[in-house]
Design a protein around this nucleic acid. Structure first.
Lengths: 164, 164
DNA sequence: CAGTTTAGCTTAATGCTTGAAGTCAGTTTT
DNA sequence: AAAACTGACTTCAAGCATTAAGCTAAACTG
């Protein structure tokens, strides 16, 4: 039992409120854009967009789950939905039958191509346009620092070029 | 149809990845702390903590929903759960029977008092400790700017003192 | 080479959040 | 003063996410 914890002072309180608001509202705003313009969940978009950026447009389910930051059961169900819509298909890995490959179809590719511009425009509109160049740079550094505190063991891979 | 959208350059890409990671992981980390140490959802914590900061420890349901940034049906069910646990009780507003008042019980007050220090410690650990003072100030400004882009009509009320 | 273990994925079951209809109190209209 | 209406809240039905169990394929062990 700590005697008396260090509460947030006024400046910290204000900063925290701003960040909390951002955490609450920004994901919803991005989700809404994707839902409205493309009929896609943000997670669904991460899945097909992740597949689109990899050579062969193919990834193992477990690998894809890590890229999209979701659990394996969740991915499994989402891929089933995407399969029904004709954007993804499954195939057992010829090299190792335990793995399942998720493969982006041509229709799925077209969907990504049709959806991505609107999404990056939304990101630009919500995140980059309101900020100065210096703030953009600061935001990157701030994000990385907080990420290290949240997931210390997680090595952020140097961002690979979009292989679209 | 835009001919060719403005994609994110490398620096922007990196910034966006950092922010996206933050949006993905930070809420989960805070939720996990509350769940582990107090058996509370973040939303449940927002509800009882919101009540604890207001004179009389009483709020109308609709007002409370706005404070906790949740829908009215969601709040209704969460308050039902909190009622079962003995931390909140409901009462019709004597002034206007259409409103329902949510009232924090003494046990609920004790729960907030027992929970709050750990939560602010988690916020400090994840958000403030990794940052310099300057970055903390920048983060506040950045959050407010993005918030204005996401919810332009939303007037951020000047942060009222914690009336705990 | 048979049996056991491990790993990847899927399926099933539980719980929570969202959207739509329903209820009730107070207000306005005729 | 009765009837219709508005607003606040609750409840019901549906959808999605997490947890636990089940299944198949490969590898390890005796």
């Amino acid at each position: 039992m700590e005697s008396e914890p260090r509460w947030l002072d006024d400046a910290e309180q204000e900063t925290w409120m701003a960040l909390a608001g951002l955490l609450m509202r920004l994901p919803g705003a991005l989700d809404a854009q994707l839902q409205r313009d493309a009929g896609l969940t943000h997670f669904e978009y991460l899945v097909i967009s992740g597949l689109s950026m990899v050579p062969g447009r193919t990834m193992r389910m477990s690998e894809l789950a890590a890229v999209a930051e979701g659990s394996l059961p969740r991915l499994s169900q989402v891929v089933s939905r995407l399969e029904k819509r004709g954007w993804v298909r499954r195939s057992p890995d010829p090299d190792d039958g335990r793995y399942t490959l998720a493969i982006l179809t041509d229709e799925g590719w077209d969907k990504v191509v049709a959806t991505a511009p609107g999404h990056v425009a939304a990101v630009r509109h919500f995140v980059f346009d309101p900020l100065t160049k210096g703030q953009q740079r600061q935001l990157g550094e701030i994000g990385r620092r907080i990420m290290r505190a949240v997931a210390p063991d997680d090595q952020c891979p140097p961002p690979r070029k979009a292989t679209s």
